[in-house]
Amino acid sequence: MKWLELLTVGGATLVSAAVVVTLYSLGVRLTAIAGDADQPSPGTKRSLAYACFGLCGLAVLFGLYLIIPYFSK
């Protein structure tokens, strides 16, 4: 039986999904904060939010890298 592989897959799924969701959620939160009326530095918050979204985009690109066999070999 391939219990180790099963465990690896489960762990990798959990960690990668959690990382992406955390980043995206932070992005969403920062956008919300930047949108507040009495926000001293909306520009910084907004660029931080975009940085978070950008990291998520990198994660998606990594997914593409895994999907397309041309790159993986």
Binding site: E5, T8, V9, A12, T13, S16, G63, L66, S72
Partner: peptide
């Protein structure tokens, strides 16, 4: 992605 690349 994890399952197709880690073998289960």
């Amino acid at each position: 992605l994890a399952s197709s690349h880690l073998g289960f």
